[in-house]
């Protein structure tokens, strides 16, 4: 009997590997979770889109829950989530701030004019340096930041209605309490 068990070892190892492979089928190998979740959001000052001379200072956001949405006029997936952002803005539940990533002001403004502006303020990050601080690697990305300035959630890729309802809204309710 002991002999047989020894020879079952390859099969057992194989089946364990299969378990992982099966799990792997439902994971996205390219989604990189941010190490910044649970850490203070990097503070930044940046020019405000469309209001020359004005600066947005992230430190001023302390004390409120806010969404930082990284987007750009050249980003096709951003158009996809734009209606969701607009709908969100209409409910007035949350203040969404935009970070216009590696973009020109004129093109960004043209997009907002055409599709509507869901943002309270849009800060600009023309050279992408703020993006690097936030670990942005694919636009759009969205950060949920709490009252103490800590990043609580990061959405990589467009926010869909499903993600909004199942993940973001419940989190916001919890944070705003």
């Amino acid at each position: 009997m002991k002999r047989t068990i020894k020879f079952l070892l390859p099969l057992v190892l194989f089946l364990i590997a299969v378990g992982f492979l099966f799990k792997g089928l439902f994971l996205d190998p390219r989604e990189v979770p941010s190490p910044l979740v649970g850490k203070p959001a990097p503070s930044f000052q940046a020019p405000v889109l469309g209001e020359a001379g004005k600066t947005f200072n992230s430190d001023d956001m302390k004390g409120q829950v806010w969404l930082l949405n990284v987007w750009a006029s050249w980003c096709a997936a951003c158009r996809e989530e734009h209606p969701v952002l607009m709908a969100m803005e209409k409910t007035g539940q949350i203040a969404t701030y935009g970070l216009d990533y590696k973009d020109t002001d004129a093109e960004a403004q043209a997009v907002l004019k055409e599709h509507g502006n869901p943002y309270k303020v849009v800060a600009t990050d023309a050279d992408g340096k703020i993006g690097i601080d936030y670990g942005v690697y694919g636009v759009p990305e969205t950060y949920v930041i709490d009252k103490t300035g800590v990043i609580r959630y990061k959405q990589i890729g467009p926010i869909t209605e499903e993600i909004l309802l199942t993940k973001i809204v419940p989190l916001l309710k919890e944070l705003q309490r």
Binding site: F7, L8, L11, F14, V18
Partner: peptide
């Protein structure tokens, strides 16, 4: 994956039965 389980799993099972 199912194919792997059938082919490799089957082969290793046969191995476990016959090798001793």
């Amino acid at each position: 994956l199912v194919y792997l389980v059938v082919v490799i799993g089957g082969a290793l099972l046969l191995f476990a039965l016959r090798a001793p």
